[in-house]
Structure formats: structure tokens, C-alpha cells
Design a binder for these strands. Structure first.
Length: 386
DNA sequence: GGCACCCCATCTGTCGTGTA
DNA sequence: TACACGACAGATGGGGTGCC
């Protein structure tokens, strides 16, 4: 095949990120599974299956085909199987792949193909969180889940951004968070732009308590992680867990709080980590300029404009006036929450100290036993000489 | 010891979000 | 709207802990 032709795998591997490569591979595979009349039913496509699809793709772009009719068939196939957004994505990817292989469908034919499926639209109905619901959710969360939720609520950060935070990204003294990456594996945020946002007093307090406990958490997590893919202690992140862990933690807590409702069409939860971000935006907008809120949340259209017009001090001053809206507790309840967290922290510290004492005692006893064993063998040796 | 539950992890398929 | 990527759901596999 000529070097300017891209098979399925060459096409998908040319994408920048693993996520996009995965999605594109899925789309082109679906196209050939549809054409061959063999829809894939397994949980994941094997390497052997992918190679077969790759061979089919190679043959497909090397010979004349009825592309229009094949695309119409594919459009009908995806329309029966996926939500409007997803079906449009699959179709767009296949058309992109064909175009990259110099297979250009006329504008009219493309209109006919795209017109045969539903337009892009979101079908999951989001639940708008109330303050009471967030509090209820928080009460059922584990420790790490509470830290993630409170940071999200106070900063408006995406979950991936929270999980990408390093110690140097947070200025604890000034309550400023520098959002520099979207998770531990990526170097930038979703829109490739760094920004700042702020912590409430409450979030700062909870974060400090967490920092005191973080090493103990890592120690326990390493013991619990499996031997096939062990978790390591050298995870430098503030919140050293994966996205899916927090998702599980969030979902379990929602269920316990009686807040877990799934959309009947998509089976997706109507409250997600993104709901906290939406709460942040909607609440702060009632008390500070919308442009500032959007900039803190990292919405592209507002970032540069807001940061050009306002100093960090001005942004923080406005945020501080409105931050009670993105705090779990009302100001009068804060002392009680602090006292509760402090007693939890003291309990953790006493456990750690007791653990250390027992370890020292164990080591001392082991040394004593070794000494006794050494003495016994010396006595036995002396006796055997007699 | 068996079991249930919790927590840890990765992977794939699907749906949602946001920018250009 | 195309494109890129984040987020969610579910499968799978393993270890720790508490209860019976």
C-alpha cells in the first residue's frame, strides 16, 4: 500500500492522546464490524480482532467501494445503538479517516448521511444540587472523598485537576491554588491554559488536616493495593488516588445518602463530580461578576480577559465576599466542624504513635530472643565440648 | 475459616464538555 | 459542528478487616 494511505491502526495511532486513540479505534472498528455483519459482542476487542479489522481497513481503502451506501448503512447502525452525541462522533471519525485516505464524499451526500441520524444533543438529565444535598453527600463520604469534594466545591476545579495537584501548586498561606494540569499524566489543563483559583477557610482547614494524615493514607493504600499493579509511596500528588477511585467513593456515598438516581435512558448518574463544579459556578455567580467566576472555573472564553482586567488581589477580594456560598458549613458551624476534624486527627496521630511503640517493642523483644538463642547455642557448644 | 464489605488498581466502551 | 479529551460505568482482580 502507498505510504499516503492510513489503515485503521495507523490512523488511530496518529492521534496525540491515548483516550482519543481509543475512541477513534472504537469508531473505525464499529464501521467494519457493521459492514461485515459481525457486531462485536465481547467486553473488549482482542489484539487478534484489531489486527483483523486493520487488515479489512487496508483492503477497503485499496479497492473501489460504494462509500456512500456503506456510510448510510453505518449511520443507521450507530443510530440504533448509541446516544446522539456518540453516534455523531463515530460517524465523524469514520468520515475523517476516509478523507485522510483521499476518499472524499460530496457535500450533498454527506448532508444526506448526517441528516439520517439525530443531531448532537445531551440526553442525560442533570440534577441541580442543593446545599443540603451536598452536606448529606459529604456526611457519607470517606476521608479522601471529603477532601476531594471540599476542594472541588471551594475551587470549582474539575475532578482531574484536583487529582493532578502537587504540593507546590497550593499556596496555603494565601489560599491560592495554581491549576496547572488536569491529572497526573498530563502536563496541562483541559484547555491547555494555567489559571488560579482560591480556597475557602474551611477547605484550607480540611486540606491541612489531610496533609497531616496523607502519609498514613499512602502507607495504608500501598498495603491494600494489589500485587499485580502495586501502588507506590512516591506519589507526590496532594490527593494520591486515581480518578476511578474517587468516582467509586463519590458514587458509594451518593447511594448511602439516598441521592443516587440514574437517568433511565443512559443509566448514568444524575449527580456526578461535575455537578459540584456546576454548583460552584451557579452559586458564585449570584454574588460576584460572572466573568470572574468563569475565569476561576477555567472556561476558555473568560480566562485571558478576566486576568487582564483584574489583579489576583481583586479576584480574591471578590471571592472572599462570596465564598460562604461554596462552603459546606455556615460560618457559625465552622468551630464545631474544626473541633470534630481535630479530634479525628488526634485519634489518627495516637494510633500512629501506638503503632510505632508496638513496633519498637516487637523489635526489642526480637533482639532479646536473638540474644537468648545466641546464649543457648553457646552453652550447648560448651556442654558438647565436655 | 468463610463471607461480606471496603479499598486498591487497570482497562475498555460510552457519553458529556468545551474550544476553535 | 469537528475535534479532542474528560468523565462515567462496568468488568476484573487482589488485599485487608470485621463479623459469625
Amino acid at each position: 500500500m502507498g505510504s499516503d494511505k492510513l489503515t485503521l491502526l495507523q490512523f488511530t495511532n496518529s492521534r496525540r492522546t491515548p483516550g482519543t486513540q481509543r475512541q477513534y479505534r472504537q469508531s473505525v472498528c464499529l464501521f467494519f464490524e457493521c459492514l461485515s455483519g459481525r457486531p462485536y459482542t465481547g467486553q473488549s476487542r482482542s489484539a487478534e480482532h484489531l489486527n483483523e479489522m486493520d487488515r479489512m481497513s487496508s483492503e477497503y481503502i485499496s479497492t473501489d467501494q460504494n462509500y456512500f451506501s456503506d456510510l448510510l448503512r453505518f449511520a443507521s447502525f450507530v443510530a440504533d445503538s448509541f446516544s446522539p452525541n456518540t453516534m455523531n462522533t463515530h460517524l465523524s471519525v469514520v468520515i475523517m479517516w476516509l478523507e485522510l485516505n483521499d476518499i472524499v464524499i460530496s457535500k450533498r451526500k454527506l448532508e444526506a448521511i448526517k441528516g439520517s441520524i439525530e443531531k448532537r444533543r445531551v440526553i442525560t438529565k442533570d440534577h441541580i444540587l442543593t446545599h443540603e444535598e451536598i452536606k448529606k453527600w459529604y456526611e457519607h463520604l470517606t476521608r479522601i472523598g471529603r477532601v476531594a469534594l471540599v476542594i472541588q466545591m471551594a475551587t470549582g476545579m474539575r475532578l482531574g485537576e484536583v487529582l493532578g495537584l502537587l504540593p507546590e501548586d497550593v499556596d496555603l498561606e494565601n489560599r491560592i491554588v495554581y491549576v496547572r494540569r488536569s491529572n497526573q499524566k498530563r502536563k496541562t489543563t483541559k484547555n491547555q491554559k494555567e489559571r488560579i483559583t482560591f480556597l475557602t477557610e474551611e477547605a484550607l482547614f480540611i486540606l491541612n488536616e489531610w496533609l497531616a494524615y496523607r502519609d498514613t493514607f499512602l502507607e495504608i493504600a500501598c498495603k491494600k493495593s494489589n500485587t499485580v499493579r502495586p501502588k507506590t509511596r512516591d506519589d507526590a500528588r496532594l490527593v494520591p488516588v486515581t480518578n476511578s477511585n474517587i468516582q467509586e467513593v463519590y458514587t458509594r456515598a451518593l447511594e448511602k445518602a439516598g441521592l443516587l438516581v440514574r437517568d433511565p435512558d443512559t443509566h448514568r448518574a444524575t449527580i456526578t463530580s461535575h455537578s459540584i463544579r456546576r454548583y460552584f459556578i451557579s452559586q458564585l455567580k449570584t454574588a460576584m461578576p460572572a466573568e470572574m467566576v468563569e475565569a476561576l472555573a477555567g472556561h476558555e472564553g473568560y480566562l485571558s480577559g478576566a486576568y487582564r482586567r483584574y489583579s489576583v488581589e481583586q479576584l480574591q477580594a471578590e471571592y472572599d465576599k462570596a465564598c460562604h456560598l461554596v462552603s459546606l458549613s455556615s460560618p457559625e458551624n465552622l468551630p464545631a466542624i474544626k473541633a470534630d476534624l481535630q479530634s479525628q486527627a488526634e485519634f489518627s496521630r495516637s494510633l500512629a504513635s501506638e503503632n510505632m511503640r508496638l513496633q519498637q517493642q516487637l523489635q526489642s523483644e526480637m533482639r532479646e530472643r536473638e540474644e537468648q538463642a545466641r546464649r543457648i547455642s553457646a552453652i550447648e557448644a560448651a556442654m558438647s565440648k565436655r
